[in-house]
Design a binder for these strands. Structure first.
Length: 402
DNA sequence: AACGCGGGGAG
DNA sequence: CTCCCAGCGTT
């Protein structure tokens, strides 16, 4: 299933790719706070973690696992140049490895280095991108390449803030580029790392929520090893993509199972907290709970299409006028005597329904209205034999005793 | 802080 | 079908 499984030369490759970062030093961005359109974003980026490291051997265990089980044959790893790493990082934003790989190979075959990309017309770049989606990525990539030619002598800058200033490069991508190409000590925070950290630390709340995300950046910084940053960066992504997957993670094989809060608490399946569903449109409906002298309830068969199609339910009206109209056409009695009951909230997949029940304890049908295919008086013991929507059934069973 | 961008893959 | 995926830029 994985196109690029680890191979037997993994350990050797890992040694070859040992980083040359200055140990113990975390390069920090010289913050240009508030200047430019991206000032706010930049101000937070590259800052040293203020929280204590969570587990000294977390990274070491991940690296050991990576040496044996990581993906060491991805096309952008051979050769691992800044241009190829950058291009791969952009392509991999919101796009899976298996999809990106063939596009990447075609792209670098056509435009093998940054100056070639800068020289190419935008249409050519877009054509090479065609099918990947998020075409703003291609436009930004192209503009960034031209900016590098203009400002940085035709190469990708080796500086966090300079990278961040390029279009299409945010905090995570800048960190990934510096860590993977130069072994510099920057964290990343992609979907994999978010998921892993939420589980390992038992973090509640949607990872995209601002407070949660801030915490995750701190934790990501806290886990950074002092060396092998390129491998560590790749290890996290491989770990999240192959072991600590969203569904059915392979906890039995996990190198960091010791210390994992989600595993300890049996919450692996519920973390990370899913993104809150989009606010559903809300509708209201009045339902008429009409009782005759024997305590039977008037049920109406719903139309054959739409929500609750053909089920038996209470007569329903969109608003007060419609309810009165329906009442007066079908019943003898005083509409105004209807007693409002507690509203019922019911969620469908595509909207939320707020049911406003109103009850009349003893009404009589107009002479012309008797049981028929769509309307019938139903006693309590008959509910079980009818298809009645769940919230309506609950209302009938709890709301109207006797 | 919320949203748009886009196509593919998995359940 | 829905949800997610190596995010970022704009409003």
């Amino acid at each position: 299933m994985d196109r690029y499984p680890g191979n037997r030369f993994a350990a050797a490759a890992a040694l070859r790719s040992a980083d040359h970062a200055t140990p113990g030093r975390l390069r920090r961005g010289t913050a240009r706070r508030g200047s430019g359109v991206r000032g706010r974003h930049r101000a937070r980026a590259g800052r040293r973690a203020v929280t204590a490291p969570a587990a000294p051997d977390y990274a070491a265990r991940l690296l050991t696992w990576f040496d044996a089980n990581g993906r060491h044959g991805l096309p952008w790893q051979h050769p691992r140049t800044p241009y190829r790493v950058w291009l791969s990082e952009i392509m991999l934003q919101q796009t899976q490895v298996s999809v990106v790989a063939p596009y990447f190979e075609r792209f670098v075959a056509a435009l093998p280095d940054l100056p070639a990309l800068a020289r190419a017309p935008l249409d050519r770049v877009l054509a090479l991108w065609s099918g990947l989606g998020y075409y703003a990525r291609a436009r930004n990539l192209h503009a960034a390449a031209r900016a590098c030619v203009e400002v940085h002598g035709g190469a990708l800058p080796r500086d966090f803030d300079a990278l961040l200033a390029l279009p299409g490069i945010g905090r995570s991508t800048a960190g990934a580029i510096l860590a993977q190409t130069w072994g510099e000590r920057f964290p990343i925070l992609d979907g994999n790392v978010r998921r892993v950290l939420c589980r390992w630390h038992g973090i509640d709340g949607w990872p995209g929520a601002p407070g949660v995300e801030k915490r995750l950046w701190q934790l990501a910084e806290g886990h950074l090893p002092q060396a092998r940053l390129a491998d560590y960066t790749q290890a996290q992504m491989d770990f999240g993509a192959t072991l600590c997957t969203r569904r059915a993670p392979a906890c039995l094989l996990c190198p960091v199972r010791e210390g994992c809060a989600a595993l300890r608490d049996g919450r692996v399946d519920e973390l990370p907290t899913p993104k809150p569903g989009r606010a559903l449109p809300e509708r209201e409906a009045i339902v008429l709970q009409l009782q005759d002298a024997q305590g039977r309830i008037l049920l109406q068969r719903r139309p054959p299409a739409g929500i609750w199609a053909s089920l038996w339910s209470l007569p329903e009206a969109a608003d007060d006028d419609a309810a009165r109209d329906w009442f007066e056409r079908h019943l003898d009695g005083d509409f105004a005597r209807g007693e409002p009951l507690e509203p019922i909230a019911h969620a469908f997949t595509h909207y939320r329904l707020r049911i406003l029940p109103r009850r009349w304890p003893a009404v009589a049908p107009r002479a012309a209205v008797r049981d028929n295919d769509d309307l019938r008086w139903v006693a309590r013991h008959e509910y079980g034999a009818l298809g009645i929507p769940a919230p309506i059934r609950r209302l009938l069973l709890t709301g109207s005793d006797r």
